[in-house]
């Protein structure tokens, strides 16, 4: 099926313009060709830059010197030109695109008549652009070499290494390293009711035990709150060493939701329940079960 609109096809038919116009334009071209060349472009547009797809959100900057900004973003941030800028009749750049990594950045000269002004004309930035770079320190250095002003020195943050600069056109850039592979902080297992909250190894000689398990398991210790008590660092469940025992024993401390209720049940079931005693980490009571084994109950604060 043919499209009736194909009938609109209009091949180029040469038309000789007004000879005075032709003469004037030739003279303008000659003058333009004799003018000193503008700074040669250091980077050219390439197909890869054109192939960068538009993301859902694309920044479109108003800058008070679009040509200078294009050069700056190419030189400082390694941007690649994406097609030819569109130059308006008055010489302003009406639209230009850069590919920066996997994103597109659009920019144009200021068009006050359309309400488009750069940050310098506005008296300051109203937003930051976060640019992810392989080498933050190098990117900040290059930007500053080309006239950017340091806003925040490069430093390490929990979310990665970054620094911030205001570029020569007043736009603020957060130059950041890729966040380290999303590794949510390992949640501390919180013991629930009935879980083992603490393990105490009671021994006759804590120095001997520390040496032995330090060598065998690599345990490190911190002095505990009790006399000759040692907290074993970084084990799960939490554990410690206590001295003064006649023979080595492992004592378990169980977490409970309601210590008073738990102690009542210990007694009810034929065990022995001590008095709840406040500790830095909660209320604790020592108990003996119905066969004589010692254990502790803890209601964490």
């Amino acid at each position: 099926m043919t499209d009736p609109f194909d009938a609109l096809r209009l091949p180029v038919t040469p038309v000789t313009p007004d000879p005075r116009f032709a003469e004037r334009l030739r003279a303008r071209l000659e003058r333009a060709l004799l003018e000193p060349r503008s700074t040669p472009m250091t980077t050219t547009t390439d197909q890869a830059a054109l192939d960068v797809p538009l993301a859902t959100l694309t920044p479109y900057l108003a800058v008070d010197d679009a040509r200078g900004a294009l050069d700056f973003y190419v030189e400082a941030f390694g941007a690649r030109r994406r097609g030819e800028p569109i130059v308006m009749e008055d010489g302003r750049i009406g639209h230009a695109e850069l590919a920066v990594g996997g994103s597109v950045l659009m920019l144009a000269d200021e068009f006050p008549e359309l309400g488009l002004l750069g940050p310098r004309a506005r008296g300051g930035v109203s937003q930051s652009l976060r640019l992810q770079v392989a080498d933050v320190d190098e990117a900040v250095r290059r930007a500053m070499q080309r006239g950017a002003a340091l806003v925040r020195a490069v430093a390490d943050y929990p979310h990665g290494r970054q620094g911030a600069v205001d570029d020569p056109f007043g736009h603020r850039w957060i130059l950041a390293s890729a966040p380290t592979a999303a590794r949510p902080a390992e949640p501390e297992p919180v013991p629930g009711h009935g879980d083992v909250a603490y393990i105490t190894h009671v021994v006759p000689d804590t120095a001997a035990a520390r040496r032995f398990y330090g060598e065998v398991l690599g345990w490190r210790y911190a002095a505990g709150s009790a006399e000759d008590g040692w907290h074993i660092e970084g084990t799960a469940p939490m554990a410690g060493l206590g001295g003064g025992a006649t023979r080595p024993e492992v004592q378990l401390c169980y977490q409970v939701d309601d210590l008073a209720e738990a102690l009542r049940r210990v007694r009810e079931q034929g065990g022995e329940a001590g008095e709840p005693a406040p500790r830095p980490y909660g209320l604790m009571a020592d108990c003996v079960d119905n066969q004589g084994a010692r254990f502790y109950l803890l209601q964490s604060s």
Partner: peptide, 12 residues
């Protein structure tokens, strides 16, 4: 080129 460019533009 001038008549071609001008012709293209004028017709459009």
């Amino acid at each position: 080129a001038l008549p071609q460019v001008y012709g293209y533009l004028l017709a459009r």
